[in-house]
Amino acid sequence: MPQLQQIDTFLSQVVWLAIAFVVLFVVLRTIALPKIQATLEARRDRIEGDLDRAQTLRQEAEQVLAEYEAAMAEGRDRAQSAIRDAVEDAKARAAQAHEALAGRLAEDIRKAEARIETARAEAVGNIREVAVDVVQAAAQRLIGGRIARKSAADAVDAVADR
């Protein structure tokens, strides 16, 4: 077995092993490992940064959503109150109009009643005149003389009041 027979090569193998190992160590230590570490670190930083930014954005979105909901609620409230005001206003105006109309109608009714009263009084007055004339005329026919208009009027009143 050459591994155990070529004892004279042992020193050479160990020396070259040491040289090769140290060279590799220096290359890795000074060039390869810092580069790998830097790359991995940059990636980790980037991922953490992205996660942080995502977190920030999420918070912002939540804030915007909350603001939006508050604005929506406020708008709804304002719309409700506007509707309420409008309804009340309309009701008030309707009541006012109703009142005005009722007043005008009452006035008309009152005027009409007054007119009717006047007409009735006039008519009653006219009937009295006619009745007095009729009494005078009837008395003339019956007694053949004229009676005083005053007496006739008194007689008519006495009958009418009964």
């Binding site: 004279d8 090569t9 020193l11 050479s12 193998q13 020396v15 070259w16 092993l17 040289i19 090769a20 060279v23 590799l24 290359v27 890795l28 060039i31 390869a32 580069k35 790998i36 790359t39």
Partner: peptide
């Protein structure tokens, strides 16, 4: 006797390969 042998060559090839693998790869 510190002769450069086929074993030494294999070691240096290994060193070169590892270095290339890592340095060029990165």
């Amino acid at each position: 006797d510190l002769s450069f042998t086929n074993s030494s060559l294999a070691m240096l090839v290994t060193v070169a390969s590892v270095s290339l693998f890592l340095v060029v790869g990165m």
